[in-house]
Amino acid sequence: DHIPWITAVLPTVIICVMVFCLILWKW
């Protein structure tokens, strides 16, 4: 059976995008 890697990667991607947007917003 396949491991849904997207389910494991998606939260990390969302957190990175939120942090990236927060850094851009504070500049």
Rank of each mutant, 00 (worst) to 15 (best):
D1L: 12
D1E: 08
D1T: 05
D1Y: 09
D1H: 04
D1R: 11
D1W: 04
D1N: 11
D1A: 11
D1C: 05
D1S: 07
D1F: 05
D1Q: 15
D1K: 08
D1V: 07
D1M: 15
D1G: 13
D1I: 08
D1P: 06
H2T: 12
H2Q: 09
H2R: 11
H2M: 14
H2F: 08
H2D: 14
H2V: 15
H2L: 13
H2E: 04
H2W: 09
H2A: 10
H2G: 08
H2P: 12
H2K: 12
H2I: 12
H2C: 09
H2Y: 13
H2N: 13
H2S: 12
I3F: 13
I3W: 03
I3D: 02
I3T: 14
I3G: 11
I3L: 15
I3S: 10
I3N: 06
I3M: 04
I3K: 05
I3E: 01
I3P: 04
I3V: 06
I3Y: 10
I3R: 13
I3A: 09
I3C: 02
I3Q: 12
I3H: 08
P4E: 02
P4H: 03
P4T: 12
P4L: 14
P4M: 08
P4S: 10
P4I: 12
P4F: 15
P4N: 14
P4C: 15
P4Y: 14
P4D: 05
P4K: 15
P4Q: 09
P4A: 10
P4R: 12
P4V: 15
P4W: 02
P4G: 10
W5C: 09
W5L: 12
W5M: 01
W5T: 06
W5I: 06
W5F: 01
W5K: 04
W5H: 06
W5Q: 02
W5P: 11
W5D: 03
W5G: 06
W5E: 11
W5V: 06
W5S: 03
W5Y: 09
W5A: 04
W5R: 06
W5N: 13
I6F: 02
I6T: 13
I6V: 13
I6S: 05
I6M: 03
I6P: 13
I6Y: 03
I6R: 09
I6K: 02
I6A: 08
I6N: 14
I6D: 02
I6G: 01
I6E: 02
I6H: 09
I6L: 14
I6Q: 15
I6C: 14
T7A: 13
T7R: 06
T7I: 06
T7M: 04
T7D: 03
T7V: 09
T7H: 09
T7C: 07
T7F: 04
T7Y: 10
T7P: 05
T7Q: 15
T7W: 06
T7E: 03
T7G: 08
T7K: 04
T7S: 08
T7L: 12
T7N: 06
A8L: 07
A8D: 08
A8M: 08
A8H: 05
A8G: 07
A8Y: 04
A8E: 13
A8P: 15
A8K: 01
A8S: 02
A8I: 03
A8N: 03
A8R: 11
A8T: 11
A8C: 02
A8V: 09
A8Q: 07
A8F: 10
V9N: 03
V9C: 02
V9H: 12
V9A: 05
V9P: 06
V9W: 15
V9D: 01
V9E: 04
V9M: 15
V9Q: 06
V9F: 02
V9L: 13
V9R: 02
V9I: 15
V9G: 06
V9T: 08
V9K: 05
V9S: 12
V9Y: 02
L10H: 07
L10D: 01
L10Q: 03
L10I: 03
L10R: 07
L10F: 05
L10C: 13
L10K: 03
L10V: 10
L10T: 12
L10G: 10
L10M: 04
L10N: 02
L10W: 15
L10E: 03
L10Y: 15
L10A: 13
L10P: 08
L10S: 11
P11I: 14
P11N: 01
P11K: 07
P11T: 14
P11F: 15
P11R: 00
P11V: 14
P11S: 11
P11Y: 11
P11A: 14
P11G: 12
P11H: 09
P11Q: 05
P11M: 13
P11C: 00
P11D: 01
P11L: 14
P11E: 01
P11W: 04
T12V: 06
T12F: 12
T12W: 15
T12Y: 07
T12G: 14
T12Q: 08
T12M: 13
T12L: 14
T12D: 00
T12H: 08
T12R: 00
T12P: 13
T12I: 05
T12N: 12
T12K: 03
T12E: 08
T12S: 08
T12A: 06
T12C: 10
V13H: 02
V13W: 14
V13M: 07
V13I: 04
V13Q: 03
V13F: 08
V13N: 07
V13Y: 02
V13L: 14
V13A: 04
V13C: 06
V13K: 02
V13P: 07
V13G: 03
V13S: 06
V13R: 00
V13D: 00
V13E: 01
V13T: 15
I14S: 14
I14M: 11
I14K: 02
I14Q: 04
I14N: 15
I14L: 08
I14A: 12
I14G: 12
I14Y: 15
I14E: 01
I14H: 06
I14D: 00
I14W: 11
I14P: 11
I14R: 00
I14F: 05
I14V: 14
I14C: 11
I14T: 06
I15L: 07
I15N: 01
I15Y: 01
I15S: 11
I15M: 09
I15H: 00
I15F: 02
I15A: 03
I15P: 04
I15C: 02
I15G: 03
I15V: 04
I15D: 00
I15W: 01
I15Q: 00
I15E: 00
I15R: 00
I15K: 01
I15T: 11
C16N: 05
C16Y: 01
C16M: 01
C16I: 05
C16V: 06
C16K: 05
C16Q: 09
C16P: 03
C16F: 10
C16E: 01
C16H: 10
C16T: 14
C16D: 00
C16G: 03
C16A: 10
C16W: 04
C16L: 06
C16R: 00
C16S: 12
V17Y: 15
V17N: 08
V17A: 07
V17F: 03
V17M: 08
V17L: 08
V17P: 05
V17C: 13
V17W: 01
V17E: 05
V17T: 07
V17K: 05
V17R: 00
V17G: 12
V17D: 04
V17I: 14
V17S: 11
V17H: 03
V17Q: 05
M18A: 10
M18C: 09
M18T: 12
M18N: 09
M18K: 04
M18P: 08
M18Y: 15
M18R: 01
M18F: 11
M18E: 05
M18L: 14
M18I: 09
M18D: 00
M18W: 01
M18S: 14
M18Q: 02
M18V: 10
M18G: 05
M18H: 12
V19I: 08
V19C: 06
V19P: 08
V19E: 00
V19T: 14
V19R: 00
V19L: 15
V19Y: 11
V19W: 02
V19G: 04
V19K: 01
V19F: 12
V19Q: 00
V19A: 08
V19S: 09
V19H: 00
V19M: 15
V19D: 01
V19N: 00
F20Y: 10
F20G: 10
F20P: 11
F20T: 13
F20H: 00
F20E: 00
F20L: 12
F20M: 00
F20W: 00
F20C: 15
F20R: 00
F20S: 13
F20I: 04
F20V: 13
F20A: 06
F20N: 00
F20K: 04
F20D: 00
F20Q: 00
C21G: 13
C21M: 03
C21D: 01
C21A: 06
C21K: 02
C21H: 10
C21W: 15
C21Y: 14
C21S: 12
C21N: 05
C21E: 02
C21I: 11
C21R: 07
C21V: 08
C21L: 08
C21F: 11
C21Q: 09
C21T: 07
C21P: 10
L22H: 07
L22P: 09
L22E: 01
L22F: 14
L22A: 10
L22W: 07
L22C: 06
L22K: 02
L22M: 01
L22G: 10
L22V: 11
L22I: 13
L22S: 11
L22Y: 10
L22N: 02
L22T: 12
L22Q: 02
L22R: 07
L22D: 01
I23Q: 07
I23K: 07
I23F: 09
I23R: 09
I23C: 05
I23V: 07
I23T: 14
I23W: 01
I23A: 13
I23H: 10
I23N: 03
I23Y: 13
I23M: 03
I23P: 09
I23S: 05
I23D: 00
I23G: 11
I23L: 15
I23E: 01
L24I: 10
L24T: 09
L24N: 13
L24S: 07
L24E: 04
L24Y: 02
L24Q: 11
L24G: 06
L24D: 07
L24C: 07
L24V: 14
L24F: 01
L24P: 08
L24H: 13
L24A: 08
L24R: 13
L24M: 15
L24W: 03
L24K: 13
W25L: 10
W25N: 11
W25S: 07
W25D: 04
W25Y: 11
W25V: 07
W25P: 04
W25C: 15
W25G: 10
W25T: 07
W25Q: 09
W25F: 14
W25H: 06
W25A: 10
W25M: 03
W25E: 03
W25K: 05
W25I: 13
W25R: 10
K26R: 12
K26M: 15
K26L: 09
K26N: 01
K26Y: 09
K26G: 04
K26S: 12
K26H: 05
K26A: 04
K26F: 05
K26P: 09
K26T: 10
K26V: 14
K26I: 13
K26W: 02
K26D: 00
K26Q: 11
K26E: 09
K26C: 11
W27Q: 06
W27F: 10
W27M: 05
W27E: 03
W27N: 08
W27Y: 14
W27D: 06
W27P: 07
W27T: 15
W27K: 04
W27I: 05
W27S: 09
W27C: 11
W27L: 10
W27V: 02
W27G: 03
W27H: 04
W27R: 05
W27A: 12
